[in-house]
């Protein structure tokens, strides 16, 4: 259950940063990404997958969220 800081990168993509692992990866796909819901299964560009219960309304980034390994 890593704590993940998500911020918007210069190119507009979301950056998935796990401080403990020094991991900085872009989010490739998010299962649910609408104006009033964000979350579900999240896939990173390196292929790893994480899960978070969908959040309503969509959080404003940057923010720190707690993910589960999917």
């Amino acid at each position: 259950m890593p704590n993940v800081m998500i911020r918007i990168k210069d190119n507009g993509a979301l950056l998935f940063y796990i401080a403990k692992k020094d991991q900085e990866d872009e989010i490739a796909t998010v299962e649910k990404d609408t104006d009033n819901e964000w979350g579900g299964e999240v896939e990173l560009t390196d292929g790893s997958k994480y899960y978070i219960d969908p959040i309503t309304p969509k959080p404003s980034f940057p923010t720190t969220l707690r993910f589960k390994r999917a």
């Binding site: 800081m5 911020r7 940063y17 401080a19 940057p62 923010t63």
Partner: peptide, 9 residues
């Protein structure tokens, strides 16, 4: 970087 990230958030 830690404090910069914190201030951003």
């Amino acid at each position: 970087n830690y404090i910069s990230r914190h201030m951003e958030e």
